[in-house]
Simulated scan of single mutants.
Amino acid sequence: MRVQAFMFYGCAVFFLVTDIVYWLWSKDWTGTTALALSVGLAGLVGFYIHFTIRRLEKANNGPLYEDDPEGEIADAAGELGFFSPHSWWPLFVALSAAAVALGLVFGWWLVIAGLAASLLSTIGLVFEYYRGHFSH
């Protein structure tokens, strides 16, 4: 996984060089700002992946199975996490976010209603498995 971090670092360097060349040739603030934000985003993702992998390697007392040149496919077997197969909450979160975005176009009243719906649907998504039939 360390390769993915260096891929994002490489993207950040590429965007930085592109940003400098773009600024020197065009003197356009909009494109330069967009490319600068791309540099920051690629660097941020690379930084997160790099230090998350370092923490996981310390926890595993060695490289992860995907970084081991002698690793087997069976080394990756096991539980990968919990994924909700039946949740409707992501749909409600997306609809409320769309209401906020449309509120920026049509009126502040829709922004307020969308923010309220976003808050309620996010709370529902986060606390879905804390009560009721599927609590654990």
Rank of each mutant, 00 (worst) to 15 (best):
M1I: 04
M1H: 05
M1P: 01
R2V: 06
R2M: 10
R2W: 05
M7S: 05
M7H: 02
M7L: 09
F8N: 09
F8E: 09
F8S: 02
G10N: 08
G10A: 15
C11V: 05
C11M: 13
C11D: 14
V13E: 03
V13A: 15
F14W: 02
F15M: 11
F15L: 06
L16C: 08
L16S: 10
T18M: 13
D19S: 15
I20C: 10
I20Y: 12
Y22N: 07
W23L: 06
W25S: 06
W25Y: 09
S26F: 07
K27R: 06
D28T: 00
D28H: 04
D28F: 00
D28P: 00
T30E: 11
G31F: 05
T32Q: 03
T33L: 13
A34F: 12
A34W: 06
A34G: 04
A36L: 14
S38A: 15
G40Y: 01
G40R: 00
L41Q: 03
A42H: 07
A42P: 01
G43Q: 01
L44G: 04
L44F: 12
L44Q: 01
G46V: 01
I49T: 12
H50P: 00
H50K: 10
F51Y: 14
R54M: 04
E57I: 02
K58S: 14
K58E: 15
A59T: 00
N60A: 15
N61D: 11
N61C: 05
G62M: 09
Y65W: 14
D67S: 15
D67Q: 15
P69N: 13
E70N: 14
G71Q: 11
G71H: 12
E72A: 13
I73A: 15
A74E: 14
D75E: 13
A76N: 10
G78E: 08
E79V: 08
E79K: 10
L80P: 02
G81C: 07
F83E: 11
F83T: 15
S84V: 04
H86S: 08
W88M: 08
P90V: 15
P90K: 04
L91Q: 05
F92H: 06
F92I: 09
V93N: 07
S96A: 15
A97N: 02
A98F: 11
A98V: 12
A99E: 10
V100G: 10
A101P: 04
L104C: 12
V105S: 09
F106M: 08
G107E: 11
G107S: 11
G107W: 10
W108I: 07
W108P: 04
W108K: 12
L110C: 08
L110A: 15
I112P: 02
A113K: 03
L115A: 14
A116W: 09
A116N: 04
A116K: 01
A117P: 13
S118P: 00
L120W: 09
S121T: 14
T122G: 12
I123Y: 13
G124T: 03
L125E: 05
L125V: 04
F127C: 05
E128Y: 12
Y129P: 00
Y130V: 09
R131E: 07
G132Y: 05
G132P: 02
G132C: 12
S135N: 07
H136C: 03
H136I: 10
H136A: 08
